[in-house]
Design a protein around this nucleic acid. Structure first.
Length: 123
DNA sequence: AACTTGACTTCAA
DNA sequence: ATTGAAGCCAAGT
């Protein structure tokens, strides 16, 4: 049987793929959606080691404060910013206005919805 | 077993 | 709005 962490990773990939083009969400939100709240840091790890990064819209996952998480002087940072801008997301000083581009996931509105959704995916 | 390391988050100044 | 400290947790040393 696959490890818990492996399950986590699959859930992360699934939810990241759900983020609509031109919108963003946070590591923490993905962690929550995946059913593992408080594991925001592991979401980044899962993305970084994703076997098929090419098919994952990883650029749509940013910090809870709307900022690109990579170091501003890194290549990753520049690439992520470019990819986001290419799909219409406005990034100023490495920050996205969440009021305009935050993905309204089904689980963010209510905790009840989150529990229901969790059941669907964990049986 | 102890300590460090992140593509994190929250909260209090 | 910004900043820093504390909390977080699996992995790697």
């Amino acid at each position: 049987m696959s490890s818990n962490m492996e399950h986590f990773r699959q859930q992360v990939y699934f939810w990241v793929k759900q983020i609509p083009k031109g919108q963003v969400t946070s590591y923490g939100t993905i962690a929550k959606l995946a059913g593992f709240p408080r594991h925001a840091r592991h979401v980044s790890k899962a993305l970084g080691s994703a076997p098929d990064r090419q098919r994952l819209p990883w650029q749509r996952v940013i910090g809870a404060d709307g900022k690109i998480a990579f170091s501003p002087d890194s290549d990753h940072y520049a690439i992520q910013q470019k990819l986001l801008q290419q799909e219409g997301v406005i990034v100023k000083k490495g920050k996205v206005d969440l009021k305009l581009f935050a993905w309204r996931s089904p689980l963010e509105s209510s905790d009840e919805a989150l529990d229901i959704r969790a059941e669907e995916f964990f049986r």
